[in-house]
Amino acid sequence: MTDLEGEPAVLEGEPAVEVHQAHPSLVLEDESVRSVVGAVLEGEGLEAASIGIILGDHGLVHELNREWLGHDYETDVVSFVLDEDALPRGRVEGEVYVDLDTAMERAPEFGVTMEHEALRYVAHGVLHLCGHDDATDQQRAAMRDLEDAYLDAAGV
């Protein structure tokens, strides 16, 4: 079902979370992604106005990181808040771009599957949309604790 502009319609009661499989060969189960997003939002006491989770590769995420954030290097996840005014109203509107190549490369380092590592990036990106930052060691540790808690809550 689509709305008048041809965009996917969100049915009443249906979460406003869209998962886009943009990697040429790696995928995550849409339901696993939605479960993690839901756990983060519930834990943060927020609702999804509209959240896009785009599962891409090195090239996509690197290009976005360079073009929009001014960082010319690969990274695991980038997030973009699309409506700054939504958060004070308890809603989140944004996009999270996850680099599945990085998840595949880094997962053995942490003794987890590619899926688990990529879902951590999903949680991390959504936490950024919820207003969390990771600029300091203390903030990074706090976000890591939240990621762990929300992955557990989602059954990951």
Rank of each mutant, 00 (worst) to 15 (best):
G59H: 13
V61E: 06
A118N: 06
F110I: 06
M143Y: 01
Y121E: 02
A16Y: 12
S35A: 15
W68F: 13
A9C: 09
F80G: 01
I51F: 03
V77M: 10
E95T: 14
R91K: 13
G111H: 10
V40K: 03
F110V: 07
S32Q: 15
E63W: 09
D99Y: 00
M114A: 09
L129A: 01
R120H: 07
L4M: 11
A22Y: 02
G56A: 14
L11F: 11
L146I: 01
G6E: 09
S79W: 03
I53Y: 02
D152T: 13
H132R: 14
T75R: 07
E63G: 11
V27R: 12
Y150P: 01
T102H: 12
L46D: 06
D148N: 14
G90H: 09
V17K: 04
S35P: 05
L64H: 13
G52M: 09
V37T: 13
L41F: 12
G43A: 13
R140D: 02
H124W: 02
A107M: 10
H124G: 01
V61W: 01
E93D: 05
Y121N: 06
L82G: 15
D101A: 07
V17F: 02
V92F: 07
L41K: 05
D137Q: 10
L129Q: 04
V96N: 00
G45E: 10
M143T: 02
Q21P: 03
L64T: 04
A154V: 04
G56V: 03
T102R: 12
E18W: 02
E67P: 06
L87F: 07
D30P: 00
L119E: 06
P15F: 05
G70F: 03
L64Q: 05
Q138H: 10
Q139L: 08
E67R: 14
T102A: 11
A141K: 14
D72C: 03
D148E: 14
A142M: 07
S50K: 09
V126S: 02
V92G: 00
